[in-house]
Design a protein around this nucleic acid. Structure first.
Length: 829
DNA sequence: TCCAGCCACTTTTTT
DNA sequence: AGTGGCTGGA
C-alpha cells in the first residue's frame, strides 16, 4: 500500500547532505554538530516536500527544531515564514523552548502551536469572515455533551435510541472527516435523524457563539478554502511548514495542511511552501479517534514528495529492548518498514514475570522498584509503570502506597476540568458572552438559588418562542421564578459593569465573590479543596497574564512576514491586508488603536486584533486543560497509561497486565486493524525504556468487581525469546501448567498449542485463589462451539454453579456473555 | 427544590 | 469497585 522507495540506511543516495548544505555552512556548524548522517540530511534538506520517518527515540524533536534553526540561520526562512504544527501543547512548548535555546530568535514571529491553537488564532483574526463573534467560546468535550443533551431534550429525542454520547461521537467524527450535515450520507432513518440532530446542534452552537474542538478545525479549513485572499495570504506567508506526529493527523487536518500549503491545479498541488512531515507509522495509536496513518501515503502521492528519510538510529535503549520492539512490530502487516538499531550494548534482558493475581503482580513491581532504587541507583522518577487501561492503576497505587514509595499518577481530571473550575469559568464566559446558554445553565442554580428544573423549562420555552438566548428571555418569565431569573441576570450584568477595565485577577476575584461560589463551598463539608482550587484559578490567571506578556510588551507591534515590526511601513493597516485589496470585504477591519486607559489585551501579531485578557484566558483554559497533578518534579514513580507515555522515556519501565482481553484489549482485538493498533501500542510501551524493561501478566485479576481468569497476552509469543528472561519462580510439578488437568481436559493440548504456552519456563500453577476449579471445564482461552454462533474463543469466566457465565468471542457475532446453564457450548479440541 | 439511594457503566484521549 | 446520572420521596 505504501511506496517502497523509502530508502533505508544511508541517505546519500537521494539526498547528499553535502549537496543540501549551502555553501558557507559546513556540517561542522555548531548547530549541526553531533547529528548522524540521516539527521543531518533531514535538517539540511533543500526546499521541497519531505517525509521523515522517525522511529522511537531517533531524535525526532531535535531534527525538527534544528531544521527550523538551520532554515533561519542560513536565510532560507524568516521567522514569519515558518509554521510548525504539533498535537499537544507540551510538544509545542518544548519546540519553542529548544528553539530559543538554540538561536536568539524571535519565536513570536513564528506560528508554532497545536492544530487547534493555530485554528483558534486564524478564526479570531478573521472572525468576521468565518462568521463568528470575536469572543467566541470554545466548548470542551464535557460542554459539548451537555449542549447535545440540552438539544435532545428540546427536540424530544429518545435518548435510549440516540445516546448523547454517541451523537457527540458522531458529530465529532463527521467534522474530523470534514463533513457538514449536508455531506454526510444517510443510510437509514436513524442515520437521517442523526444528521438532522447534527444540523440542529450546529445551529445551536452558532446561535450561542460557541465552537467545539472539531468546529475549530473545520471552520478554519473552510475559511481558507472559501476565502481566496485570506488563503493566498497565508500560502504566500508560510514558506516552511513542519508537522510533528504526522501519523496522528486526521483527514480534516490533512486537508487543512493542503489548503495552507497550496492550491490544487489540475490534480497537482501547486505549492510555494515546503512541507516537512515527521512521523512514525508504528507509533500510530490514535486511529480510534480518527487518526489516519494513510495520510502519510497520501502525502507522498499528492504532494509528490521528493525527499524521504528514515531515522532508524535509536539513542534511547539497549538492544535487548530494541530487538524486542522490532520483533514485536514485525508482526504487523502494512508497515512502511523500519528497523531501529542502536550502538549501545545488549544491556539487561527483558524480565518477564507471571503473577498469580493482580495483587501479587503489583507487589512484585513494588519489590522490583525498591530494588532498582536501592541497589541499582535508579531515580524513582526515572521508573514508570505503564498499563493499558486506567482501571489497572488502583492496585498498583495501593501497593506503592502501602510500601511508602512515592508515586505520581497521570491522567484523571485536569485542572480546568474540575467541576468548581468549570463553574467559575462559566461565570466568566457569561461576562463575555451572555448568549452562552451552556454556561448559563451550568451556573444559573449553582450555588442553589431556588431555581429548579420546572422554572428552567419555562425559561427555555420563552427563549425558544422569542428566538433569543436564555439571558435575554428572563423578563418573559412571570412570577417568582421570573424574579429569581432576573436577580441572577442582574448579578451577572452588574458584575460585568463592575469589572469593566479591571485586571484579570480583579475580575476573577470579584466574580468569586458576587457569584457566591466561595461562600457556597465554605459551608460545604469537603469544600476546602475546592476553594483552594478556585484560589489556584486566580494564580493561574495571574501567571497567564505575565507569561502572555500583558505587562511586558502589551502593545506588541504587528509583525510582517519577515518578523519585522510593521509600524513604519503600514502603521494603521493589518499585515493581512498587505498585498491584498485593503478594502476586500472578507477581511476584518484594520488595526484599531489600543485605548490606553483599558487594560491591553493580546494583540494578534498578524492582524493587530485586540483580544480582551479575559477572552484570551478563557481560550487558554479551553485549549489547554492544564496539568492533572501539581506535584511535579518530586522524585516519584510515574504511573500512566501506555497512551499517556507516548513521547516520554524512562530508565526503567514496567508493563503490567499483559493478558488477552486487557492487552490486547477485548474491544480492539476483534478486527485486524484493532489488533495491529494494540501491537503498536505495545511497541510504544516497550520503546519507552532506556535500560530496564519488565513485563508481567497475572492469572487472575479483579476487574469491575469480578475475578477474571486471563490467558497471557499473545504479545509474549511475538517477542524474541533470546532477549527475555523469565523470572517467575519455578514451582515443583514441572510442566503442570493446568490445574486439575483431569477436569474435562478442556485446557489440554489445544489451549496450549493455540497460545503457545511454554510449560518449561513458565510453570507456576495458576490455582485460582480461594476458588474451586470450575466444574464446567471451561477456561479463558479455549475454543468452544455454539449451535447458533459457531466457533468462538472463551475470553473470561465469571461466577460459579448456575450463575456461571462465559464471555465468548465469536468471529461472526462478536463478543457475548453466555450463561453456562443455558447456552449450549461444547469444547472444541 | 433538594437530597439520598439506586442503577448502569466501565479502552485508550488531545484539543 | 467506584462513579456519575437519574428517580422518587421529603
Amino acid at each position: 500500500m505504501f511506496p517502497h522507495d523509502l530508502f533505508s540506511g544511508a541517505p546519500d543516495e537521494s539526498v547528499p547532505p553535502s549537496a543540501a548544505a549551502p555553501l558557507g555552512v559546513p556540517p561542522s556548524s555548531p548547530l549541526l554538530a553531533g547529528l548522524n548522517p540521516e539527521q543531518l540530511a533531514a535538517v539540511t534538506l533543500p526546499n521541497g516536500h519531505a517525509l521523515i520517518l522517525a522511529g522511537a527515540g531517533s531524535g525526532k524533536t531535535r531534527v525538527l527544531t534544528t531544521r527550523i534553526a538551520w532554515l533561519l540561520q542560513n536565510g532560507h526562512a524568516t521567522p514569519g515564514g515558518i509554521l510548525a504544527v504539533t498535537f499537544t501543547n507540551k510538544a509545542a512548548k518544548e519546540m519553542v523552548a529548544r528553539l530559543t535555546a538554540m538561536l536568539p530568535v524571535n519565536v513570536r514571529g513564528m506560528w508554532i502551536g497545536t492544530f487547534h491553537g493555530l485554528c483558534n488564532r486564524l478564526l479570531r483574526a478573521h472572525h468576521k469572515a468565518a462568521g463568528l463573534p470575536q469572543a467566541f467560546q470554545i466548548l470542551d468535550t464535557q460542554d459539548q455533551l451537555s449542549a447535545i443533551k440540552r438539544l435532545c431534550k428540546q427536540f424530544n429525542v429518545d435518548e435510549e435510541r440516540f445516546p448523547p454520547k454517541q451523537l457527540a461521537y458522531f458529530i465529532a467524527g463527521c467534522k474530523e472527516e470534514g463533513m457538514r450535515p449536508g455531506d454526510v450520507p444517510a443510510h437509514d432513518a436513524d442515520g437521517r435523524k442523526k444528521i438532522e440532530l447534527y444540523q440542529l446542534y450546529e445551529e445551536q452552537c452558532q446561535r450561542e457563539g460557541v465552537v467545539d474542538f472539531g468546529e475549530l478545525m473545520l471552520r478554519s479549513y473552510e475559511l481558507l478554502r472559501d476565502n481566496d485572499p485570506i488563503r493566498e495570504h497565508y500560502q504566500r506567508r508560510f514558506r516552511h511548514i513542519l508537522v510533528d506526529e504526522f501519523q496522528d493527523t486526521n483527514r480534516l487536518q490533512y486537508l487543512w495542511l493542503k489548503q495552507i500549503a497550496g492550491d490544487e491545479v489540475a490534480g497537482r498541488l501547486q505549492s510555494h511552501a515546503s512541507v516537512m512531515a515527521v512521523g512514525d507509522d508504528d507509533q500510530s495509536i490514535y486511529a480510534f479517534r480518527g487518526a489516519r496513518v494513510g495520510n502519510m501515503a497520501d502525502f507522498v502521492r499528492e504532494f509528490d514528495v521528493q525527499h524521504q528519510i528514515k531515522l532508524e538510529q535509536n539513542y534511547r535503549s539497549y538492544s535487548n529492548i530494541l530487538d524486542s520492539a522490532n520483533h514485536l512490530i514485525g508482526h504487523n502487516s502494512r508497515r512502511l518498514g523500519k528497523n531501529l538499531r542502536t550502538t549501545q550494548g545488549a544491556g539487561e534482558p527483558v524480565r518477564v514475570y507471571e503473577a498469580s493475581s493482580d495483587l501479587a503482580e503489583a507487589q512484585w513491581m513494588v519489590d522490583e522498584i525498591k530494588q532498582l532504587v536501592r541497589s541499582d541507583g535508579f531515580e524513582r522518577k526515572e521508573i514508570a509503570v505503564l498499563y493499558r487501561s486506567n482501571a489497572q492503576s488502583r492496585v498498583i497505587e495501593s501497593a506503592l502506597f502501602n510500601a511508602s514509595v512515592p508515586y505520581r499518577v497521570y491522567g484523571g481530571l485536569r485542572f480546568f476540568e474540575r467541576a468548581e473550575i468549570k463553574h467559575a469559568l462559566a461565570y466568566l464566559r457569561l461576562l463575555e458572552n451572555p448568549n452562552d446558554d451552556t454556561s448559563f445553565l451550568r451556573v444559573v442554580n449553582f450555588p442553589p438559588r431556588g431555581i429548579g428544573a420546572r422554572s428552567i423549562e419555562v425559561l427555555q420555552d420563552a427563549a425558544r418562542a422569542a428566538g433569543c438566548s436564555l439571558h435575554d428571555a428572563v423578563s418573559a418569565v412571570p412570577g417568582k421564578a421570573g424574579t429569581n431569573f432576573k436577580a441572577f441576570v442582574a448579578m451577572i450584568d452588574v458584575l460585568r459593569e463592575q469589572t469593566e477595565g479591571q485586571s484579570l485577577r480583579g475580575i476573577i476575584e470579584q466574580m468569586l465573590e458576587s457569584s457566591g461560589l466561595v461562600e457556597h463551598f465554605r459551608t460545604e463539608k469537603e469544600g476546602a479543596d475546592r476553594i483552594e482550587n478556585l484560589q489556584e484559578l486566580v494564580n493561574a490567571a495571574e501567571s497567564f497574564v505575565t507569561q502572555e506578556g500583558f505587562g511586558r510588551d502589551a502593545v506588541a507591534l504587528p509583525l510582517d512576514e519577515h518578523g519585522q515590526p510593521l509600524t513604519q511601513s503600514v502603521p494603521t493597516q493589518s499585515p493581512v491586508s498587505q498585498g491584498l485589496d485593503p478594502n476586500a470585504p472578507v477581511l476584518d477591519e484594520p488595526l484599531k488603536p489600543t485605548n490606553p486607559t483599558t487594560p491591553a489585551g493580546i494583540i494578534d501579531s498578524d492582524t493587530g486584533e485586540t483580544l480582551s485578557p479575559l477572552v484570551a484566558f478563557l481560550t487558554h483554559a479551553a485549549l489547554e486543560a492544564g496539568d492533572n497533578q501539581a506535584q511535579a518534579g518530586q522524585d516519584a514513580v510515574q504511573l500512566m497509561t501506555v497512551h499517556a507515555s507516548k513521547g516520554l522515556e524512562f530508565d526503567g519501565v514496567f508493563i503490567g497486565g499483559l493478558e488477552e482481553g486487557l492487552f490486547p484489549h477485548d474491544n480492539s482485538s476483534g478486527d485486524r486493524d484493532g489488533l495491529e493498533e494494540e501491537r503498536r501500542l505495545m511497541y510504544v510501551a516497550i520503546t519507552r525504556a532506556r535500560k530496564r524493561l519488565y513485563l508481567s501478566h497475572s492469572q487472575t485479576r479483579m476487574l469491575h468487581g469480578q475475578t477474571r481468569y486471563n490467558v497471557k497476552s499473545r504479545f509474549f509469543d511475538e517477542l524474541p525469546e533470546e532477549c527475555l528472561k523469565w523470572i517467575t519462580p519455578k514451582q515443583q510439578g514441572f510442566g503442570s501448567y493446568a490445574p486439575n488437568s483431569g477436569a474435562g481436559g478442556a485446557y489440554g493440548s489445544s489451549a496450549r498449542a493455540q497460545f503457545g504456552f511454554k510449560s518449561e519456563t513458565f510453570a507456576s500453577p495458576p490455582v485460582p485463589p480461594q476458588k474451586a476449579a470450575p466444574s464446567h471445564g471451561l477456561r479463558a482461552g479455549i475454543a468452544v462451539f455454539h449451535t447458533k454462533f459457531g466457533e468462538g474463543k472463551v475470553l473470561a469466566i465469571e461466577g460459579t454453579g448456575d450463575d456461571a457465565r462465559a464471555q465468548v468471542n465469536f468471529p461472526r457475532h462478536g463478543t457475548k456473555w453466555l450463561a453456562l446453564s443455558v447456552a449450549k457450548l461444547t469444547v472444541v479440541d
